[in-house]
Amino acid sequence: MHKVLIVGEHDGKTLNPATAKCVTCARGIADGEIAIVLLGADTAAVAAQAAALAGVKSVLRVDRPENEHPLAAIFAPQLAALAADYTHVFGPSTSFGKDLMPRVAALLGVPQVSDLMTVEGPYRFKRPTYAGNAIVTVEADPARKLLATVRVASFQAAAGGGTAAIESKSTAAVLPSHTRYVGARSGSTDRPDLQTAKRVVSGGRALGSADNFKLLFSLADKIGAAVGASRAAVDAGYAPNEMQVGQTGKIISPDIYIAIGISGAIQHLTGIKDARTIVAINKDGEAPIFEVADVGLVGDLFQIVPELERLIGG
C-alpha cells in the first residue's frame, strides 16, 4: 500500500491547477492513497477546492501565520515532519515546487525525481534530461521515501466531484527566521495564465519590437488565449521573462499553440512539445519550427496576423 502526499500550490484564494495534475500523476501509482497538504495562513478556501478533486482521500491544512508566503526554508521542515506517514511526496514542477521539494528531500536524506513525466511503477519513472533530448527511466529503492516534482505538462488535471475529508494538522517543526518575504511584482493581466491556458499565442524575435507584440495581444484577446514569447524575444526586450516559453521558461501543454515569428530553437521546442496542436507562422520556410508544427504557413507575420484575427472573427 502506497501513500502519496501531494504538496498543493495556492495563493490563499485559488488552488493552482498544477495540483490537480499532480493528483493524476499520483493516481498512476497502484494501490495509492492520496492526500493533499496545504500550507498557508488560512487555507479554508483552497482546502475546499482540493477536497473536490476526484481520487483524493484527505486534505491536510497546516495553517499558521508564518506560512503566509511560500518560503522553502519555512515550508520544508514542516513537510519533512508530515512526510513521516507517507511513502511518496509529490510537488508540482513549477517555480514553487522546484524551489521547495529538494529542500524537503535533503532534510529527509532521500532522492528526488525531478520533472516526473511517466509513472511506470511505484518506484520506476521516466523523466527528461538534456533539455528533453534524452528521456531516462529511473528506479528508486522502495525501502526509502521518494520525492518528486511532477512535470505538469505531462498530465491532465484530475476531475472534480471528489469528497475528501479535510483535517487540520500541526507540526512540532522549528521554523527558522533567517529567510524573510519582502514582496512580489507580477505582470498580472486579465488574460489567461500562460502555464494553464488552453490556447497560447506566442511571438519570437521576428516581431521586431515590444510595440509589435500588441498584434499578438490583439489576436490573443480575440480567441481568449494567453501570450507567450521565445527566449530570443525576451532577451531582445520585447517581452518580460514571465512570458518566456521553453527550457529556461515555462513548459506548457495547451490545446493549441500558435508560434508567430519563432524559428524554433531546440530549447523553445522543449517547452511546447506537449501542445496538442502547434501552428507555425514564419517567413522562413526552412525554420525548424515547421519540423514540429501540425499546421504551417510561410509568410509575413505583419500581414498574416491581422488577417487571421479578422477571419477568425468572421
Binding site: 533530448n133 528521456i135 531516462v136 529511473v138 528506479e139 526509502r144 512539445k273 515547421f290 504557413l297 487571421l308
Partner: peptide, 27 residues
C-alpha cells in the same frame, strides 16, 4: 546510488504536419 538509471531513450517525435497556402486555409 539512490536513483538507478535503467534506460535512456530519445524523445517521441511529433509527426510532421501540413503546410497551408494562406490564412483562409489555415482558419
Amino acid at each position: 546510488v539512490l536513483l538507478r538509471t535503467v534506460k535512456t531513450e530519445p524523445p517521441a517525435q511529433r509527426q510532421k504536419g501540413v503546410m497551408v497556402k494562406d490564412v483562409a486555409e489555415l482558419v
